[in-house]
């Protein structure tokens, strides 16, 4: 179980109908997180990915890194903060 923060900006805010939420998730990787969000907010994955999987922005903030763009196999860790734009 990882406790993470999700921030929904721009159109993702409209999809999720909220600007942010804290969640406890069991998914192991970033791509599993997208699957979870797709399940909860239908259309999320299609909105996020382009053909090569990086059309829209997701930033991942962790204490030891100021920010990175997570790739599909990035492990999801306790305390992560994801921002979708």
């Amino acid at each position: 179980m990882a406790k993470i923060l999700l921030r929904y900006m721009g159109r993702f805010c409209e999809l999720a109908q909220k600007p942010l939420e804290e969640r406890e998730v069991t998914c192991k990787t970033f791509s599993e997180l997208i699957d979870l969000l797709e399940h909860d907010y239908p259309g999320y994955a299609a909105e996020f990915y382009n053909l090569i999987g990086e059309r829209h922005e997701c930033t991942l903030r962790r204490p030891e890194v100021a920010s990175i763009n997570p790739k599909a196999d990035e492990p999801v860790r306790d305390g992560d903060c994801y921002g979708f734009y």
Binding site: M9, G10, R11, T59, A66, S67, G83, Y85
Partner: peptide
């Protein structure tokens, strides 16, 4: 392109905040 058109350039501030 789309967020700017829909919400104006202010829509970027949340993202820039995430980036630091």
């Amino acid at each position: 392109r789309l967020p700017y058109g829909l919400y104006g350039d202010v829509s970027v501030n949340g993202l820039v905040n995430e980036y630091g």
